[in-house]
Design a protein around this nucleic acid. Structure first.
Lengths: 274, 274
DNA sequence: CAGTGGTCTAGACCACACT
DNA sequence: GTGTGGTCTAGACCACTGC
């Protein structure tokens, strides 16, 4: 063994394909000009990520075993393991002992609705069951500048806007406005949305190949305007929780801007601080 | 080497102190009745945690090196490493390459105010600097039943209640009510609080030996009542963000209940979803 | 320089799931 | 049984810090 060493110096110009071990390997030993040191397992992590983005393995798929990946990248199993470990804590992969490692998905992700942080108060277990969803509109437009900016689009680019109301036991509780970039979501329509059950992000995966990976939220307390008041059945001025979410796919590409208004009389936004 | 094996079966009755290697070891190979399997590194993690709780190492202290701990617990360095890794991602320990591993602290924790999630809006960089703090009151009382319940206290137990207002550039923005169990916080007074600068949780560490480790928050939008309106300089009914926090020390013992009311006209609660 | 955490490897064995 | 992830070890070497 002359390569696969801890540090960056010695491997790169030679051995893009070792003597033994036939085709199908990918030579993870990468080239950094000089001071751009990054540990091997980080490079492996990037390579796996690239495969995820490229769609080599789709949400729900099992990825190759640690040993297979180790052979493919020409590193030890432990190094692959550390890379996968990080991808798993980032919720991009899911490990299942005895079975394999799988690409995470919003569809059957054990705890569904991973990004939904609103829970019924303990004192009011009403409004538990699944929400009733009513799509109010779904239209294409040239988006407002501010929305376009946050989605990394140009002012004139096409957008899809969706507005919907979620109700629990018949009482409206959540009003959401959703903006999506028009190009990746070509074909999204009111019918698509209405006929679908299950998490919207699962639909995005299966219908548009867009997997939401992380999101940031800005939360405020606001007074209901006439519009919101009517749709949520409260008076104008009623305090509502405003949750503005920017959701990202792989590679920190923003793919959705969502603004939710929540009635919080019998519900709260739950958060864990570590 | 006859012991220190991956699984639980073979080690325990013999070798509570090996032939070689003199005093000071702690025999981590523990005894589980039968089916209570837990990996070695988890047991090590528990042992380290116990030392943290017992105050063997105080916030800011450096803990023994991985090799020292490995010797002490009679396991390999890699196993200690994995235990420390988890404690570090839980923010109980902080690793510093070349220096050592340290007990986390709210005092100089690089990013201070770890639990404060309220940020000024990008559009309003006013109100950036440190908040001006005004303690309104600090008194002892037999707490309300609901508060006592959440702090795992009996109805009649003594509590400390603190009320304070935080302002930015002179405008009040945050009203906080804080309840603490009376016994661990014996001696906490308005003077103690007023004279202190820096994070309150840092003061709790140095003065009372209580380190807050994690917290849960329940967030709602509420209307300002007369009290809050007066203190925050808004009209009654003005929407405010209500953040109810339960903070825990080691071992999931609740040690603080805090209810904050935030004006969010130029501020928001920021959250990252993974 | 010595001491600490960080990376990498190689090999052994265990726990779990499927067939 | 076979294949997968999970744990543990032992040893080598790198990177950073501070004396």
């Amino acid at each position: 063994m002359a390569s696969a060493h801890p540090s960056q110096p010695d491997l790169s110009p030679e051995d893009p394909r070792a003597p033994a071990d036939a085709a199908g390997t990918e030579s993870a030993a990468l080239l950094q000009p000089t001071p751009a040191f990054s540990p091997l397992y980080q490079q492996i992590k990037s390579l796996i990520l690239r495969s995820l983005q490229a769609g080599e393995w789709k949400p729900g798929d099992m990825i190759p075993s640690e040993f297979d990946l180790a052979a493919r990248f020409r590193v030890s199993q432990g190094t692959v393991r550390k890379a996968i470990d990080e991808l798993a804590t980032d919720n991009l992969l899911v490990r299942r002992q005895g079975k394999g490692t799988f690409v995470a998905t919003h569809a059957e992700q054990h705890i569904q609705y991973r990004f939904l942080r609103v829970l019924p108060d303990a004192s009011a277990p009403e409004a538990q069951g699944p929400a009733e969803r009513r799509i109010i509109e779904c239209r294409r437009l040239r988006g407002p500048a501010e929305v376009a900016r946050q989605l990394d689009l140009k002012g004139g680019d096409s957008l899809v806007q969706v507005r919907r109301v979620l109700s629990f036991s018949g009482t409206p509780a959540i009003l959401e406005d959703i903006w999506l970039p028009g190009t990746p979501f070509k074909g999204l329509s009111l019918e698509t949305l209405s006929s679908d059950k299950g998490p919207m992000y699962a639909l995005f995966e299966t219908q548009f190949g867009v997997r939401m990976v992380r999101a940031t939220e800005k939360i405020k307390a606001v007074a209901a305007d006439a519009d919101a008041a009517a749709l949520l059945g409260v008076e104008v001025g009623h305090p509502l929780l405003s949750v503005e979410r920017l959701a990202y796919t792989y590679n920190d590409v923003p793919m959705e801007l969502r603004r939710g208004l929540y009635r919080t009389e019998t519900r709260h936004y739950h958060n864990e601080l570590n």
